[in-house]
């Protein structure tokens, strides 16, 4: 029974790590291939955060209960709060820098 639980957790760790690496690789492809600045920023924020959370959750399952997993939980909370603020600062900076988004449909931001 214990052996079964051990192998199940080992399987869960590899599922989490492979999911995280898939998201990180899609971040790199999106950074290269997307045509506009703001769409590039979409790839740089969402896929990056999903990959980071998945890799760190895999490390928590690998570690078990202890002080190290508490540090990893603090790292997840810090990364979620910090990175969204950083992305918003970059977007607001680019808006002041006169980089216009390439919109296909006409925008309704100037009513």
């Amino acid at each position: 029974m214990i052996d079964f639980i051990h192998s199940l957790s080992q399987l869960l760790v590899y599922v989490f790590l492979l999911t995280g690496i898939y998201f990180l690789f899609s971040t790199a492809l999106g950074m290269i291939r997307f045509p506009d600045f703001y769409t590039r920023l979409h790839a740089g924020s969402k896929c990056l955060m999903a990959g980071g959370i998945a890799v760190l959750m895999g490390c928590i399952v690998l570690e078990g209960i202890g002080f190290v997993s508490l540090k990893l939980i603090v790292l997840i909370l810090f990364l979620v709060i910090t990175n969204s603020i950083a992305i918003h600062v970059i977007a607001s900076f680019a808006d002041n820098y006169n980089i216009l988004p390439k919109t296909i449909v006409e925008n309704d931001s100037d009513e």
């Binding site: 971040t27 590039r40 740089g44 980071g52 990893l72 990175n83 970059i90 820098y97």
Partner: peptide
């Protein structure tokens, strides 16, 4: 432009943070 470089640098930084944890 400049914000492209800053955003790309941010994602490289987070990737190397995950490399440190692994």
């Amino acid at each position: 432009s400049v914000p492209d470089r800053i955003a790309a640098m941010n994602s490289i930084g987070v990737m190397f943070l995950l490399v440190l944890v692994l």
